[in-house]
Nucleic acid binder design. Structure first.
Length: 359
DNA sequence: CACCCGTGGGA
DNA sequence: TTCCCAAGGGT
């Protein structure tokens, strides 16, 4: 075992983070078993998402669906409603598909090998390696954003990402031990999250600083080298909050794929098009006494959206509307992405007020 | 490989 | 304020 590996495992034993889905070295030694379902669920939630954002969702999911069979028995809509607010909603759709596949094709147990895991929806290179390593003790290289940063600094890799990926993977594989590969992977990620951070890394307390080429020869903060990013375009559109005489809001479903796929929304113009959508009352889904209710801005990963919000009240029941009516106090139970909560809050300020058990 | 796909928190 | 980014995957 290489010195870096041994030092990191020792550091992990005393400095590892306490996380709801994690079995600590002490707990492992005491015989506590790893549950592949919980590892898988946490890994999907953690994709491009912070630990603090994931914690409440993870706890709610395992409370509601304690096993993969429970999740497979749930509807996709129920899963989307529980996922609402966490973002990247294709993860939730694939989560459900994956649970179905595990139960239908694998007898309700996750496969333990990389290829079997990668064949499942929503599981790619990283997640397959993470599950194989953490849940099944397989000595495979787990490479996430933390590992890319730590390895590129340890070996002062000047090749920009993502081209450096194969070299980083080879370095990580060479460090990964046959014993405790899962703890080692988690140790690398904990190091990246708490010490070998993107900005101002705490090298003075780093357990592997002696072996860090970037620290010895230049500046760790210069790594990893990344390609320049593009500017974020702005898109415009309008959203229409229709309120019935019974204090209900008209919602509809977005298409199954693409941005916010399968989630709920109020009627809007086609702002997902590359060209800016209409922003005026003339673009309303039906005639009513629409009044301006403000503007909201929402930042997506690859564009900024500015929506003009319009509101109309006392809308009579109409039979051929594409959607459904929801009581204002029941809106929180719907699969509303954050941007739609912003839109509705602009038109109905008390819609998501934090009082009462239904809100 | 390049692009699409959310959100909220921190510097 | 503005920018960065956090345990990536699908196409």
């Amino acid at each position: 075992m290489q010195p870096i590996t041994a030092n990191l495992l020792d550091w992990y034993d005393s400095h590892h983070r306490i996380l709801p889905w994690r079995i600590s070295p002490r707990e492992q030694k005491a015989g506590k078993a790893v549950d592949p379902y919980r590892i898988w669920l946490s890994e999907i939630m953690l994709q491009q998402t912070t630990v603090e954002a994931v914690k409440p969702y993870f706890n709610a999911f395992v409370e509601k669906w304690p096993t993969v069979k429970d999740l497979a028995a749930a509807s996709q809509d129920a899963v989307l409603r529980a996922w609402a607010g966490l973002g990247y909603y294709s993860r939730a759709r694939n989560l459900k598909k994956c649970a179905d596949a595990v139960c239908a094709d694998h007898g309700g147990s996750f496969p333990s090998d990389i290829n079997g895991l990668k064949s499942l929806p929503g599981i790619g290179d990283y997640t397959a390696a993470a599950i194989a390593s953490i849940a099944f003790n397989r000595p495979v290289a787990v490479v996430d954003g933390n590992v890319e940063r730590v390895i590129s600094r340890l070996y002062a890799i000047d090749t920009p990402l993502p081209a450096a990926k194969s070299e980083i993977r080879a370095r990580m594989q060479a460090l990964t031990p046959d014993e405790r590969p899962g703890d080692f992977a988690q140790a690398m990620m904990d190091l990246g999250a708490t010490i070998c951070t993107p900005k101002r890394p705490a090298c003075f307390v780093c357990p592997v600083k002696e072996g860090c080429e970037a620290l010895q020869t230049s500046d760790p903060e210069l790594y990893p080298v990344k390609a320049a990013k593009k500017e974020r375009p702005i898109r415009l559109g309008a959203a229409f909050v229709a309120v019935s005489a019974d204090n209900e809001v008209l919602l509809r479903s977005r298409t199954e794929t693409g941005l916010l796929g399968g989630m709920a929304e109020v009627p809007t113009t086609a702002w997902t098009a590359r060209q800016d959508g209409a922003t005026d009352i003339a673009s309303a889904p039906f005639a009513a006494d629409w009044i301006a209710a403000g503007n909201i801005t929402h930042i997506f990963t690859h564009f900024e959206l500015r929506l003009a919000v319009f509101k109309a009240g006392n809308i009579p029941a109409m039979q051929n509307l594409d959607g459904w009516w929801v009581k204002i106090e029941k809106l929180s139970a719907e699969a509303l992405p954050t941007i739609m909560k912003k839109v509705i809050a602009a038109a109905i300020p008390h819609a998501f007020a934090k009082r009462g058990k239904d809100v």
